[in-house]
Write a protein that binds this DNA or RNA. Structure first.
Length: 262
DNA sequence: ATGCCTATCCTCGATAGA
């Protein structure tokens, strides 16, 4: 079975790239982030025509996450826990940042971790609270069922190690590399999850800014991850980052991340 | 060195992205 995750940065703009990607890599389950549309705007038809089921949650033009599967799509949930933090000063809202379902016996989550914006911004505290609740929830899943096969996939908006950005000096005082964010990411690993892609893609990035020729200059970041529970990690036999997908006109600023299971 | 930012909408400027 092959599972992929991709911050597509608008699914409507890039639906042709999505269908081409699914076919090019023979993908069974694809988790999308930043679909940037409402449920009624999600382009499900071309995916159904290829034999995939779809589940999507999107409230407006911001955020939005989806699961696309041809190996089953059961028990769909549009928040990882009832306690998933809300955002907004006046009227806090549950943003469309997580969707999970059981696909071919694996519980797959498409996660879009809040960006954080600035270190002193309310969004940064929201990001840390969101990650802490995800950790607590995922730890409880494994406490209830140590053999559970779970994939926490998506755009984590954290570069966990210095090698995950092209130049640490360029990120002085920025989000994505701060110690609290890195500690939050490590705490998810400590809860019983493993980055199953890194061993196969040493030194690779998953994101390159649209500006300043970042992609050809190799000024990238590794911020998209597939974390697997122990039972799932034991099935992994390969992984890759589809850097080709970042090339050309109309590319997302993120590349898809793929993992292969026995 | 696959290109000098891109997507959205209550759209021509503001907001968000990382």
């Amino acid at each position: 079975m092959r599972i992929a995750t991709w911050n597509v940065n608008s699914v409507r703009t890039r639906i042709d790239r999505v269908t081409a990607f699914l076919q090019r890599h023979d993908v069974d389950v694809l988790a999308l982030q930043e679909t940037k549309c409402r449920d009624d705007q999600f382009p499900a038809l071309p995916l159904h025509e290829l034999g995939y089921e779809t589940a999507h949650v999107g409230l407006d033009q911001w955020n939005g996450v989806a699961l696309i599967s041809r190996v089953g799509l059961d028990d769909v949930r549009t928040q990882f826990a009832p306690e998933q933090p809300l955002f907004g000063a006046d009227a806090p809202v549950l943003e469309a940042r997580s969707i999970g379902a059981v696909c071919g016996g694996v519980e797959v989550w498409s996660l879009y971790v809040p960006n954080g914006r600035e270190l002193d911004h309310p969004h940064y505290h929201y990001k840390l609270a969101w990650l802490e609740q995800l950790r607590a929830t995922a730890a409880q899943w494994l406490a209830d069922d140590p053999g559970k096969q779970v994939a926490l996939t998506g755009d984590w908006n954290i570069a966990p190690q210095d090698e995950d950005v092209w130049d640490m000096a360029a990120f002085e005082g920025s989000t994505h590399v701060s110690e609290p964010e890195r500690a939050a990411f490590r705490s998810v690993l400590d809860a019983g999850f493993t980055d199953v892609v890194r061993p196969y893609t040493e030194g690779a990035y998953t994101y390159w800014d649209y500006q300043r020729l970042a992609f050809p200059k190799r000024m990238g970041m590794r911020i998209d991850f597939i974390l697997a529970s122990q039972a799932l990690a034991a099935r992994v036999n390969g992984a890759m980052i589809d850097r080709e997908e970042r090339k050309g006109k109309g590319a997302s600023d993120h590349a898809p991340v793929i993992v292969d299971l026995d």
